[in-house]
Computed example of a mutant assay.
Amino acid sequence: MRLLIVEDERRLARSLARGLQAEGYAVDVCHDGTEGLRLAREHDYDLVILDIMLPGLNGYRVCAALRAAGDEVPVLMLTAKDGEYDEAEGLDTGADDYLTKPFSYVVLLARVRALLRRRGRSAAPVLRLGPVTVDRSTRRVERDGAEVLLTAKEFAVLEQLAERAGEVVSKTEILEHVWDFAYEGDPNIVEVYVSALRRKLGADTIVTVRGAGYRTADRGA
């Protein structure tokens, strides 16, 4: 899952990014609304965490511009303001949720997970790939009922494949959703994580489609 944080309080932005990266999310960060809108338009994010009081374009305008363009990416708005009219304005511009500063990181993480679960086909909290189950809410993976321990990044790669069970997912698509845009390492890192998942979950869990990418079994197969 790839997230965008648009927050001009740099210390807060860094803290949120570190916490979310530790959970296995790829996180891009910027500090003004104009740049945030550009990034959101250019990349396929799974969720945007958007401050309201931003230089350039404020969060209301960024969210409204995304919705006007037909972009339905989930938006979690952050603000130092506190009042029902501020919340109403944020929701009226198309935000999906609203959090007032100061907030608990645990609460923010729960809101992020809830919004990601609601999005499109990823709404199912538990994904099944034959004998493998992927519980998105608890981040627990089992094969034949036995828990398999994965690192945060291994889980993120598996989740990306499981969301599109039965489809071919390219290496580039996995990189775009699991690593942030600043990643400049070897793209073959994807193969390293796929190999690790096969060792832990069984060689039949992920199939290589030569020249195209990877595919898991259809859900429930």
Results as ranks from 00 to 15, higher is better:
129 L>K: 05
45 Y>Q: 00
83 G>R: 05
108 L>N: 03
179 W>G: 00
189 I>N: 06
55 P>N: 11
168 V>Y: 12
120 G>V: 04
208 T>E: 15
110 A>F: 10
162 A>G: 02
25 Y>A: 00
103 F>V: 00
198 R>N: 06
133 T>G: 00
1 M>N: 03
63 C>I: 08
218 D>L: 15
59 G>F: 08
151 T>G: 15
140 R>Y: 04
212 A>P: 06
49 I>C: 05
119 R>C: 06
189 I>Y: 02
196 A>C: 12
60 Y>C: 10
202 G>K: 12
54 L>H: 04
183 Y>I: 06
31 H>V: 08
210 R>Q: 14
61 R>N: 11
94 G>S: 07
9 E>Y: 11
83 G>C: 04
54 L>Y: 05
48 V>Q: 01
135 D>S: 01
135 D>W: 04
115 L>R: 09
143 R>F: 08
72 E>W: 14
55 P>T: 04
83 G>Y: 03
59 G>H: 06
135 D>L: 07
55 P>Q: 08
189 I>Q: 08
50 L>R: 00
113 R>Y: 05
2 R>L: 03
142 E>K: 11
45 Y>R: 02
19 G>K: 04
204 D>C: 10
90 G>T: 05
20 L>A: 03
146 A>P: 00
7 E>K: 02
96 D>W: 08
68 A>V: 11
115 L>H: 07
162 A>R: 01
72 E>C: 13
60 Y>P: 07
33 G>P: 01
177 H>L: 11
45 Y>P: 06
18 R>V: 13
89 E>S: 12
145 G>W: 07
12 L>T: 05
70 G>H: 03
134 V>M: 09
183 Y>E: 01
95 A>N: 04
